[in-house]
């Protein structure tokens, strides 16, 4: 018998096993809310990472007073109104009331930057405002201040569907991000797609794999015991598969972030979410 034939038999066997446990599996699936993807999208259903987490973790996110990430949002609110730099300006000097002016911004990054001729993400946009308009120092990646401001700004867009541009000038960067997504890296030789496209909903050890969306970032991770950025999460995935991660804020990660944002196109922004 060829190995293919044997594999087919094994698959049928596995299928029968799966039928046996279907009651359980479909119950969990039914509970997962999904949205329909746009035309040509790689997923049949787009599901927020929230749907893959335990009721306890979900409950932490559901209640703003319980959600520990709101400490960062509050800090961000303070910073929004704090003048800094040689220009002695605050964010609100230009952008005034964030609830109005940042209503959709959190759903639209990474966004094309005319001056740099490439997309920038939210953290980079914040730092560009600081250096160019406030004449203040850029915040370090993963600093409390940058996490706080990113969490605060994206929180203004909570509930707004993710809406990144992928065509026109964004197209080459989108394509590069897509290529990274499907490229196997590291000694474990895995691409993002192996886990987050092919195996979402399956347990990998104790953790249930999600579709790996970004609509909840910056996110309070129970594992980190603090809020962390999208790029920190990317680095963690790459380390897990024994790869050399790209640098936070690198073109590679911004391109990847753009592509992954598109994979979650239409999902409501949840920032700051709580994940395990």
């Amino acid at each position: 018998m060829t190995i293919k034939a044997k594999t087919a038999i094994a698959l049928i066997g596995a299928g029968m096993l799966a039928l046996g446990t279907m009651g359980l599996a479909s119950a969990a699936d039914e509970e997962r809310k999904s949205i329909a993807p746009p035309d040509g999208h790689p997923l049949d259903e787009i599901i927020s990472g929230y749907e893959f987490r335990s009721p306890e973790t979900q409950a932490l996110q559901d209640d703003d007073f319980e959600n520990p990430a709101y400490l960062w949002v509050e800090k961000g609110q303070e910073l929004w109104d704090t003048p800094e730099g040689k220009a002695n300006k605050s964010c609100s000097s230009c952008h005034e009331d964030a609830a109005e002016t940042m209503k959709t911004a959190g759903a639209e990054f990474p966004k094309y930057n005319e001056k740099l001729k490439k997309p920038v993400n939210m953290e980079q946009q914040i730092n560009m405002c600081r250096t160019e308009h406030m004449e203040a120092k850029a915040w370090k990646w993963e600093s409390e201040e940058l996490l706080a401001m990113t969490a605060f700004v994206r929180n203004q867009s909570r509930g707004v569907p993710m809406n990144v541009k992928t065509d026109g000038l964004m197209k080459p960067f989108f394509d590069k991000g897509k290529e990274l997504y499907y490229t196997r890296v590291g000694q474990l030789d895995m691409a993002c797609s192996n886990c987050h496209e092919d195996n979402y909903g399956n347990h990998i050890r104790s953790d249930m794999l999600s579709q790996g969306h970004t609509n909840g970032f910056p996110t309070f991770r129970l594992k980190w015991q603090k809020v962390g950025s999208t790029h920190r999460r990317f680095k963690g995935c790459m380390k897990n598969i024994r790869a050399t991660p790209y640098k936070v804020g690198s073109d590679e990660f911004v391109n990847l972030e753009l592509y992954i944002a598109y994979r979650g196109q239409g999902l409501p922004v949840e920032a700051p979410a709580v994940r395990n």
């Binding site: 196997r184 890296v185 590291g186 000694q187 030789d189 895995m190 092919d198 195996n199 790869a243 050399t244």
Partner: peptide, 18 residues
């Protein structure tokens, strides 16, 4: 998705340690 447990070539961006 299964890793190759006894292969050394053909990888990309392997962490130095490995």
């Amino acid at each position: 998705i299964m890793p190759s447990f006894y292969r050394t070539g053909g990888y990309q961006r392997v962490a130095k340690k490995f």
